[in-house]
């Protein structure tokens, strides 16, 4: 990874909501072009880490840089797929409208989305197989469809780095495969994709890079080298046996 560019670099990051730190002194480098899973138990700080990278939460200490520059200067390079439960799906709007929001960042203040933005949004919806639902009121989408809408919204941003918080939560096997194929496409196109992931079984199959997190960073690196019982045990605290593809 010496001659590889670093997409995300995190130094000495510490985050606390109150007195107790949720993330403790995290150093983490994500090389360009990897498809990385962040794994760790509930409450490990995975969502917090993603939100801190994105500047949604202010850290107590530490810094985040994107391609060598502070995140605040590189916003447009990073797209975010939040946890599905973080918004009110009863909001009065359509699926296409939500996906179109992905283009708001490049539009900037006040300017309204036009034909060009609509085209981008429709293309993103097609990629995730949601074109048929474009005019559907968002409350009438299933959980998996809502997840795809969020994914399409991020795709519409056309970023270099994608940060996703549990995009597989509550989706069926077909959707999961569809989503992972899209993520692999992104990697093929040279993008960097970071995914908070809960299903340890599928880590070796889906990802090439992994970070173990539990308040502290336990380990980070290629799945082939570090996805083992030792690190799993350190992260989850119990003797973890998973079928790691040999």
């Amino acid at each position: 990874m010496d001659n590889q560019k670093l997409a995300v670099q995190i130094d000495d990051l510490t985050v606390a909501y109150n007195y107790k730190p949720v993330l403790w002194d995290i150093d983490l480098s994500v090389p360009e072009g990897v498809l990385m899973a962040i794994v760790g138990p509930n409450g490990a700080g995975k969502s917090t880490l993603i939100k801190t990278i994105l500047g949604i939460i202010k850290p107590i200490a530490g810094s985040v840089s994107i391609y060598g520059k502070p995140y605040s200067k590189q916003r447009k390079m990073v797209a975010y797929v939040p946890q599905k439960g973080s918004v009110d799906w009863d909001f009065p709007t359509t699926a296409l409208d939500v996906v179109m929001m992905g283009t708001y960042g490049s539009l900037g203040w006040i300017k309204r989305p036009g034909q060009k933005e609509k085209k981008i949004a429709l293309e993103s919806m097609e990629k995730v197989g949601m074109l048929a639902f474009k005019n559907r009121q968002i409350s009438q989408l299933s959980g998996g469809q809502q997840q795809r809408v969020f994914l399409a919204r991020a795709l519409a941003q056309d970023a270099a780095i994608y940060l996703m918080d549990e995009p597989f939560q509550g989706v069926d096997a077909t959707t999961e495969i569809a989503i992972i194929n899209i993520l692999k496409e992104l990697r093929k196109a040279g993008k960097t994709v970071v995914v908070v992931h809960h299903d340890l079984q599928t880590v070796p199959e889906y990802f090439d890079w992994v970070t173990f997190l539990n308040v502290k960073k336990i380990a980070t690196g290629p799945v082939k080298e570090i996805f083992n019982d030792d690190n799993l045990t350190k992260t989850y605290g119990i003797n973890y046996k998973v079928a790691v593809n040999k």
Binding site: K51, L54, G55, I56, R75, K76, V78, A79, Y80, P82, S86, V87, D88, F91, T93, V98, M101, Y104, G105, L107, W109, I110, K111, R112, P113, R153, Q157
Partner: peptide
């Protein structure tokens, strides 16, 4: 009317709006 788009996106997803640089 001027800030329609900004109002809408903030109402729906404030965190995401922030990541877009607003």
């Amino acid at each position: 009317l001027l800030f329609w788009k900004e109002f809408k996106i903030l109402l729906f997803d404030a965190d995401y709006t922030k990541t877009l640089g607003f």
